[in-house]
Design a protein around this nucleic acid. Structure first.
Length: 569
RNA sequence: CGGGGUGUGGCGCAGGCCGGUUAGCGCGUCUGGUUUGGGACCAGAAGGCCGAAGGUUCGAAUCCUUUCACCCCGACCA
């Protein structure tokens, strides 16, 4: 492609709106342009990259017995009502205004299940892995970071169907392996974390993450290889345990102690023997959660324990009504009304504890949870903190931001049951099909690749995703007949040998061309100038590696073979 | 949905508090010339109802009201 007639509008400056490196570089390198909040147009070179990512996705999915579908973005809302997700999605789903009952699909579990159900009815039809690479529409309340979170975006979405959870495990493992190949081929450094299945239930899930300061997810990782989303991460922090000689509990005055730190500082209470009480309204019912004094409650873990996302903290007046005290003086003993009490695992059977007395300004000490309190269940409710020992070998945890690139998910029978998708086994017995779902964000792949492959000059594309194989740069091409002829020949020879070349044949200054080429970031630059054309037998050109910055001379006649060799391995 | 910020030629910005002939600057674009191995230089030119609507005023990019759009933080995120 001759650059003089190619639409690749590069920019020196970019709006201060763009924060992430990848966002800035996508704009500067002329890959895409914004159209509206969270909506982007892909320009020719950007679209080429997207297509390369999609090709890799397609090849690897096909290798893993995936079958590609093309599904409509317009969906009847009825099918979404059946699984309850039109309601669950709420405003996130776009609704068509002038055609009642049509929505824009934010994902496709329902549609896939609908079609699967039509013709799959026997164990002989299973397993299946179906996928699609298409636009999804989500009315994100706040799109951000360029293409990282958009309202319209490409997603590779796959669905597996199996006869049992055991077989689901096989499909799931197959997809996990497929994902690893995909990320490796795209040159993206990632880590895999255990993730929350949230209130959706399901049999477990993993996320493919890229560490990045702008990432919207938080993960706990350690050198031993432990990695988990903060939503489910656990650590090997020692539980509070029991002390000897713990007398009967007794009340004591603690005026003006609103926080755990007040108790520690003003009333000489040991931090590890503090227990704080949090009251939440879960499905309309008040529940008291007892935590170690300065631990942070984890909402995702709560949602898993109580299997609902209908959870909110109790208000001030509710607290008083339920417990008899305001926040700061609440505890598991002497509650005004009888409510369920759960406690964090670290407090299991602990004694010698200090906690609120459910009277303002008073606390109990010497509490023994197994002797004095009625704890319904001990569960893991706490959020892990930086530096805590991990559960593998005690290596300290780091807390990092990360971008979620892919998510693999054991759905189980949620959708098959809701949509009545069943099969007959060998004995003629009916079972719901056991499903999994597997997503990858295509734009995010591109953004993450750029995040990991750029320098102060611009993008540094890896071979597999670069919009062109190489950049042919003619210096003073409008002046020098020799340069023009040499470039034309190189361009045509490379093209004939199947290489995709961006040929800078523009009338522009040398410095301008170099800066532009570095910004666009193709893996190799062939620089053709009069100075080197006179060298050697038939003339030489400069071959420059964008990543390393190394350059070397190469004879005109060797160029084709050189690149054929590169493109073959 | 809460908090903050920004809308001025194609792009990036200044001006605004303190209203006053013709609204600036850089980049880009066009014409001519000079240059040429790291975003060249000179000369000339085109291109704007200052986001929109209303108001105050003799007079509004500037002050007031309303509204829209975009960005950031938070809430939310199958």
């Amino acid at each position: 492609m001759k650059q003089s007639s190619y639409y690749i509008p590069t920019l020196k400056d970019v709006t201060s709106d763009a924060q992430m490196t990848s966002h800035k570089l996508m704009l500067r390198a002329g890959l895409m342009r914004p159209l509206a909040a969270g909506i982007f147009s892909w320009l020719p070179s950007g679209y080429k990259v997207l297509k390369k990512i999609m090709d890799i996705l397609r090849e690897e999915m096909d290798k893993s017995t995936g079958q590609e579908f093309m599904l409509p973005a317009l969906n009847p809302v009825e099918i979404w009502d059946k699984t309850g997700r039109s309601k669950a999605m709420g405003d996130v789903m776009f609704h068509i205004k002038n055609r009642e009952g049509l929505v824009l699909a934010p994902t496709h579990e329902e549609i896939i299940t609908y079609h699967a159900k039509q013709h799959i009815s026997s164990y002989k039809d299973l397993p299946q892995i179906w996928y699609q690479i298409q636009s999804k529409f989500r009315n994100e309340p706040r799109p951000r970071s360029g293409v990282m979170r958009g309202r319209q975006f490409f997603m590779k979405d796959a669905y597996s169907m199996d006869t049992s959870y055991e077989n689901l495990g096989k499909s799931y493992d197959k997809m996990a392996a497929t994902y690893k190949r995909i990320f490796d081929r795209c040159g993206i450094k990632y880590f895999v974390v255990g993730a929350s299945s949230g209130a959706m239930g399901g049999g477990g899930s993993q996320e493919f993450m890229v560490e990045n300061a702008f990432g919207e997810d938080t993960c706990a990782v350690s050198d031993s290889g432990y990695a988990a989303n903060i939503e489910i991460a656990t650590s090997a922090v020692k539980s509070v345990g029991r002390i000897e000689n713990n007398p009967q509990y007794e009340i004591f005055d603690t005026p003006n102690a609103r926080t755990i730190n007040d108790l520690i500082n003003k009333y000489n209470v040991q931090e590890e023997r503090c227990a704080k009480s949090l009251v939440y309204i879960i499905e309309g019912e008040p529940v008291l959660i007892l935590m170690r004094g300065n631990d942070e409650l984890n909402l995702s873990k709560m949602e898993s324990v109580f299997e609902t996302s209908n959870i909110r903290p109790a208000g001030d007046s509710e607290l008083l009504e339920i417990t008899g005290a305001n926040a700061g003086s609440i505890g598991p003993l002497n509650l005004k009304s009888e409510i369920k009490i759960y406690a964090d695992n670290l407090l299991k059977d602990a004694n010698g504890l200090v906690s609120g007395a459910n009277q303002n300004g008073r606390h109990y000490k010497n509490i023994d949870l197994s002797r004095d309190a009625k704890i319904l269940k001990y569960k893991d409710f706490r959020t892990v903190q930086v530096g805590e020992p991990d559960v593998i070998d005690g290596s300290p945890l780091r807390i990092v931001n990360a971008i979620e690139l892919g998510h693999i998910f054991k759905l189980g029978t949620k959708y098959s049951e809701a949509l009545d998708f069943k099969f007959l086994d060998q004995n003629g017995k009916t079972h719901p099909v056991v499903m999994g779902s597997y997503g990858i964000g295509v734009e995010r792949m591109m953004a993450c690749h750029i995040e990991q492959h750029s320098d102060d000059k611009g993008i540094v594309w890896g071979k597999t995703l670069a919009p062109f194989d190489l950049h042919l740069i003619g210096l003073n091409i409008h002046k020098s007949e020799n340069v023009r002829n040499a470039c034309d020949k190189i361009y045509n020879d490379l093209k004939e040998n199947g290489l995709d070349v961006l040929y800078d044949d523009r009338k522009a200054s040398i410095g301008f061309k170099f800066k532009d080429a570095d910004l666009i970031g193709l893996p190799y630059q062939i620089v053709v100038g009069d100075r080197m054309l006179g060298n050697g037998k038939g003339g030489e050109v400069e071959l420059k590696n964008r990543r390393t910055g190394e350059s070397k001379s190469i004879e005109l006649g060797e160029i084709v073979n050189y690149f054929k060799a590169i493109s073959e391995n």
